[in-house]
């Protein structure tokens, strides 16, 4: 979300909004418009809500919690090595994944709140949670 200033002497229209000379606008979008000067890069747009590489020793577990306030998202869990099982929202029906397998889900509403990852053997797990 860079911030821009109208450094020209004329009125500009940026993202449907009229910008008087000297006026600033903070937007998600990167613009390349004559007379529009970028004055700040921050805050930055990031499609990733959370990501982590987990190393879990056998018989231990980690909770992947969907951050609060996130309603629609996609989640991807990849087991790089070892064996794990997943419990979605505390369910006793666990999903078993071995090295090279992945679990992914697109959630248009918050149907997943937490995923428990339990290592059957020493495991390395990568997960990403993205905005959709």
């Amino acid at each position: 979300m860079p911030t821009y200033r109208n450094s020209s002497d004329e009125r500009l229209v940026v993202s449907g909004q009229t910008l008087e000379p000297g006026q600033t606008i903070a937007t998600n979008v990167y613009y390349y418009i004559d007379g529009l000067a970028e004055i700040s890069d921050e805050p930055f747009y990031d499609p990733v809500i959370a990501s982590e590489r987990l190393t879990i020793t056998a018989s231990h577990d980690v909770d992947i919690e969907i951050p609060s306030g996130v309603e629609s998202f996609s989640i991807d869990i990849f087991v790089k090595s070892g064996d794990v099982d997943l419990a979605i929202n505390g369910s006793s029906n666990r999903l078993m994944l071995t090295a090279g397998m992945r679990y992914s889900e697109k959630c248009l509403s918050r149907i997943i709140d937490v995923i428990n990852v339990s290592a059957v053997s020493d495991a390395e797990v990568i997960y990403n949670i993205l905005r959709i």
Partner: peptide
Amino acid sequence: SPVIYFNTVENRPPLRLYAGA
């Protein structure tokens, strides 16, 4: 295993990918 940062390397969290992704 590439780690991909969007717009700046200060932008966290990054996207963490893996072979075959």
